[in-house]
Design a protein around this nucleic acid. Structure first.
Length: 691
DNA sequence: CAGCCTCGAGTTCT
DNA sequence: CTCGAGGCTG
């Protein structure tokens, strides 16, 4: 027993010294230039492993261990912070027409007439990184990054080094106040920093945004302290008491509390807005910081509340982006990628070029038609831009730079992975591999989807690892993931002895797989990767059927198109004939039934909890709106009903509980009467929900 | 039946 | 983030 302990300890000691060395090396690259040679995730993993090791064997902790360095709190990587009020992203518009649409949509949603003006506040959109500052009792207590919007990272220590952020607020500020804003670096500071980097023989940053991001994500506070980062505040998160009726007033309050701010202007008409956009665009060059557009926000906060959100962005705000930066480069090759559903997507391999601050070497070409339309050929000189400043796309080919007459791209008629015929399904633009279950590329993509963030979200089982394990035959179908631990016992060599693996990382992998044996039904359905069934549809299916077995039974029954079960399926919002076809096709497939049975035996699938446990007169009821509503817009009425726990359907059936009839209601009202469904007037409806 | 809107699928880079 | 398609509205 003693010798066993000794051996383990020796192992730990060796691993410890390896880790210390490796982390030290990466720190060099990471700390100074934010140009690490490994991903943040990998780095964090190393540090975590080191910590765990030191926890178990405290005698291994040495003074020079990276866990003991200054700023040690950050050595845990950054702690996760849940946002009480989610940090959202903004929708984008690019033209005057889009702005008009945005403005119109708001008016329609609110049910306003032509003469009612909707005031907007326009402010420059800073190109930095979003940050939330939390003040409790007027003291700065927490700073967090946006992260995925729901959960960010605690960067309080680093943010406290930013001089222009007040540590305390005046007495008239509320007890709890979250200020949302942007951390950035001024152009002057950026240049000075790069000059210093260069003189010190260190690599330079590509742009101010990267420099700011790199500075904030420093694990060592002392490095951050020396970086000239700044902050602008422009919005609120959680607030203990409201202190304004409009966004404009919010901005003025923030200003009075010495929160650094950018310009903001109240615009009362579309003409005003466009004029202000031009003004900001023209003044852009004179600013000491980068901006990439103008943000418009509905001024009245009560309107904002009524407007609410579409998926991850508010309906009451949008970003009017400046025209995208372009660059010229050479297209070296066109590769074909195979997606989860068999879609063959051409990808342009480019001579790397910097566009808008990042180096781009790939760009999607979407489909064969796109290549033909733009007449893109291998070897061409092309203009690239980053659509919405993110996804690179080929804008056009510079034909006069074309040498000779290279052949047009010949789109393959077969899948490059499995050789199966590729076809266009009824005039679809996309060619699909017909290999289905036998295509290895599709199988891998399906597995990647299965473990992806919105599905099983298995830590430590990323795309690369899935590919590797699939190739080695360790994971061929989803159920294999949960059998991996047993398989590993007889595996030669076991995972921990492979390149890049160790005892700890192996343990961590099995641990994260194990925790995901317990999964919500909606995630499970999404993970199956059924065509046309994404996050939203999966949720609806989960909410409708409640359990996997109920879903499966219903799908089996619905195979008969005359059945009640089929009707019930079509009654689910957003499920029409096409989606139903794909769903039924999936459940009819024997192989899929096997997959379901295997998984069911290995997993604990939780029934779907409806998001709202609201107790209202309409919770659980199915409603149909018809006719023109006079007091509120249709979307708003629907959103309101849903927030009260009602299901809003598109057509009247005998499952409908109420039909709310506005002015000029037509066929749906008639059908409701025919079926004996209760009909409410708009007044009765608002009385009901306000009761 | 046409236009509007939401959802899904695919993609890039950090 | 964008594009296309399916579903819904009018």
């Amino acid at each position: 027993m003693n010798t066993l302990m000794d051996l383990e300890h020796l192992d730990a000691k060796v691993r410890h010294s390896d880790l210390v060395k490796e982390i030290r090396t990466h720190d060099g690259a990471y700390y100074q230039d934010d140009a690490p040679k490994i991903s943040d995730a990998h780095y964090d993993k190393l540090r975590k492993e080191l910590e765990k090791l030191e926890e178990k064997y405290p005698d291994l902790i040495t003074k020079d261990s990276p866990t003991q360095s200054v700023g040690a709190p950050a050595s845990k990587g950054f702690q996760k912070v849940k946002h009480v009020v989610p940090m959202l992203s903004l929708s984008n518009v690019f033209s005057e027409e889009d702005v008009t649409d945005f403005h119109e949509r708001i008016r329609r949603f609110l049910g306003l007439s032509e003469s009612d003006e909707v005031e907007l506040v326009a402010e420059p959109k800073i190109d930095g990184l979003s940050c939330s500052l939390r003040y409790e009792d007027r003291k700065l207590v927490l700073a967090a990054t946006r992260g995925d919007g729901a959960e960010g990272e605690n960067i309080t220590q680093n943010v406290k080094t930013i001089k222009d952020i007040p540590q305390t607020l005046p007495d008239d500020a509320p007890d709890i106040l979250e200020v949302r804003g942007e951390i950035y670096m001024s152009s002057k500071d950026f240049e000075a920093l790069n000059k210093a980097q260069e003189e010190a023989g260190k690599p330079v940053f590509a742009n101010p945004r990267n420099a700011a991001a790199g500075s904030v994500r420093q694990l060592d506070v002392n490095v951050t302290r020396q970086r000239p980062i700044k902050f602008f505040g422009y919005a609120l998160g959680e607030v203990s008491e409201s202190f304004a009726d409009t966004h404009f007033e919010v901005r003025e309050k923030l200003k009075s509390w010495a929160i650094p701010e950018t310009s903001f202007k109240l615009c009362s008409s579309l003409a005003d807005i466009m004029a202000h956009y031009e003004e900001i665009l023209e003044g852009r060059a004179a600013l000491d910081y980068d901006i990439d557009g103008v943000v418009y926000k509905v001024n009245r906060l009560d309107y904002q509340e009524r407007l609410g959100f579409i998926s991850r962005s508010p309906r009451w705000a949008t970003a009017h982006k400046f025209p995208a930066e372009r660059a010229v480069t050479v297209l070296k090759e066109i590769d074909i990628q195979v997606g989860r559903t068999g879609a063959l997507t051409p990808v342009a391999r480019l001579e790397p070029v910097t566009v808008g601050g990042v180096v781009v070497s790939n760009a999607t070409l979407h489909n064969a038609d796109e290549i033909e339309r733009k007449d893109i050929r291998v070897g061409d000189t092309v203009v690239i831009q980053r659509a919405g400043d993110v996804i690179p796309q080929v804008v056009e080919v510079l034909k006069d730079k074309r040498k000779g007459n290279p052949p047009s791209f010949d789109f393959p008629g077969h899948c490059p992975a499995c050789g199966s015929l590729a076809i266009r399904e009824d005039d679809d633009v996309i060619l699909r591999c017909t290999g289905g279950l036998i295509c290895p590329a599709q199988a891998v993509e399906r597995l990647k989807h299965f473990v992806s963030r919105l599905a099983f979200d298995i830590d430590g089982l990323g795309a690369k690892i899935v590919e590797q394990f699939y190739e080695e035959g360790l994971i061929k179908s989803p159920a294999d993931i949960f059998k991996l631990k047993d398989l590993n016992k007889t595996l030669q060599p076991p995972i921990r002895e492979r390149e890049g693996w160790g005892d700890l990382s192996e343990n961590n992998l099995f641990e994260s797989i194990n925790t995901r044996r317990n999964i919500q039904l909606n995630r499970f359905i999404y993970a199956l990767g059924i065509r046309q069934v994404g996050e939203a549809t999966a949720k609806r299916l989960a909410a409708t059927y409640g359990s996997l077995s109920a879903l499966n039974e219903a799908m089996k029954a619905a195979q008969n198109r005359e059945s009640e079960a089929f009707q019930e399926l079509l009654n689910i919002e957003d499920i029409g004939p096409a989606v139903a076809d794909d769903l039924l096709g999936f459940f009819a497939e024997e192989h899929n039934q096997q997959v379901l049975a295997d998984l069911e035996a290995l997993l604990e699938i939780q029934t779907y909890e409806a998001a709202q446990s609201v107790d209202s007169p309409v919770s659980g009821k199915t409603l149909v709106f018809t006719g023109t509503l006079t007091t509120v817009g249709r979307q708003e009425a629907k959103a309101k009903a849903e927030s009260l726990g009602a299901k809003v359907a598109g057509s009247v059936s005998k499952k409908t509980d109420y039909v709310i009839a506005g002015e000029d209601a037509g066929s749906k009202l008639k059908k409701a009467k025919d079926l004996g469904v209760e009909v409410l007037s708009e007044e009765q409806w608002s009385a009901l929900i306000n009761s």
